[in-house]
């Protein structure tokens, strides 16, 4: 696999940025990029949404998942891509959110959720799991190291490009990392990179609040068998970003403001989640 020649749906990575990665990181990234841009993508998308979704839901969430406002998402306008902006407490948040979406609609043939590169892009087992379980939809990778930031930036530019298409659904955690405090309703500050994607692409941003998942898949299975520990996902109305019309997406301050705006809307959903929880 070489990095040459542009094509639709293919992340552009300048050679100098690619050279900043280790051998395994480079291979994992190029492979994931190839998989996402290849004609096989449609087949793998079907595997994800019709096969993996079903067994994940059957073993882990079928007896305990409750959604609020999912119909709002299905009814959103179709002129551009949709960005699901969700709070982050569990490794499985975006998996379960995506499963609930694709259970009711097949509207978006392209789905990405960017992940930290640790494990999925710097370990053979991680790269293998990314392929087998998600068909490399955990893409693009976000690298922590300063020297590799160019690759992360290329990834965010790729997402912004893809989100201009109504065929694309992207799941991002604006906080960039899992909240580990004792309060599940506390939100961390949004990463500027998230704000940059929002301002560059101006997608339809749907705020989502999810609560109820842990970081142990075996625990999720046990809870589902017992029908305990409900998982609640609240989908909000599209975020009004008109205040950012004409604002320069390259300015850090604007990126921070956009991120805060979206987090504010996610925060408002906690009341609906608490209400739904008391009614169970």
């Amino acid at each position: 696999m070489t990095d040459s020649g542009p094509s639709a749906g293919r992340m552009q990575i300048p050679p100098a940025e690619l050279a900043s990665l280790s051998g395994i990181e480079r291979r994992a990234l190029l492979y994931a990029r190839w998989l996402n841009a290849s004609p096989l993508h449609r087949f793998f998308h079907w595997i994800n949404t019709q096969f993996h979704r079903r067994w994940i839901q059957w073993v882990a969430t079928s007896r305990r998942l409750h959604t609020v406002g999912l119909e709002r998402l299905v009814e959103t306008p179709t002129e551009r891509g949709v960005l699901i902006a969700a709070n982050h407490r569990s490794f499985f948040d975006q998996f379960i959110i995506a499963c609930s979406i694709y259970q009711v609609t097949r509207r978006w043939p392209r789905f990405y959720f960017p992940v930290r590169s640790d494990f999925f892009y710097d370990h053979p087992l991680g790269a293998f799991l990314n392929t087998i379980v998600t068909s490399a939809t955990m893409f693009p990778p976000i690298f922590r190291a300063r020297a590799k930031r160019g690759v992360s930036r290329s990834g965010l530019d790729f997402l912004a490009d893809e989100l201009r298409s109504p065929d694309t659904l992207v799941g991002i955690h604006p906080e960039g990392t899992r909240g580990k405090g004792s309060d599940p309703y506390e939100l961390l500050p949004a990463e500027p990179g998230f704000g940059k994607v929002v301002l560059q692409a101006r997608p339809i941003v749907i705020p989502v609040f999810i609560r109820g998942l842990s970081n142990s898949f075996s625990r999720e299975i046990k809870c589902n068998i017992s029908g305990i520990e409900p998982i609640i996902i609240v989908f909000g109305e599209p975020v009004d970003l008109s205040a950012f019309d004409g604002e320069d997406p390259r300015l850090l301050r604007n990126q921070v403001k956009a991120g805060r705006r979206v987090l504010e809307e996610i925060g408002k959903l906690t009341e609906q989640e608490k209400q739904a929880r008391t009614q169970l």
Partner: peptide, 18 residues
């Protein structure tokens, strides 16, 4: 970076902040 912007009355792009 935001404090720097406020104190020096400048605007900083994300590339420059990096």
């Amino acid at each position: 970076v935001l404090e720097i912007e406020d104190n020096f009355d400048i605007e900083v792009s994300d590339d420059d902040a990096d």
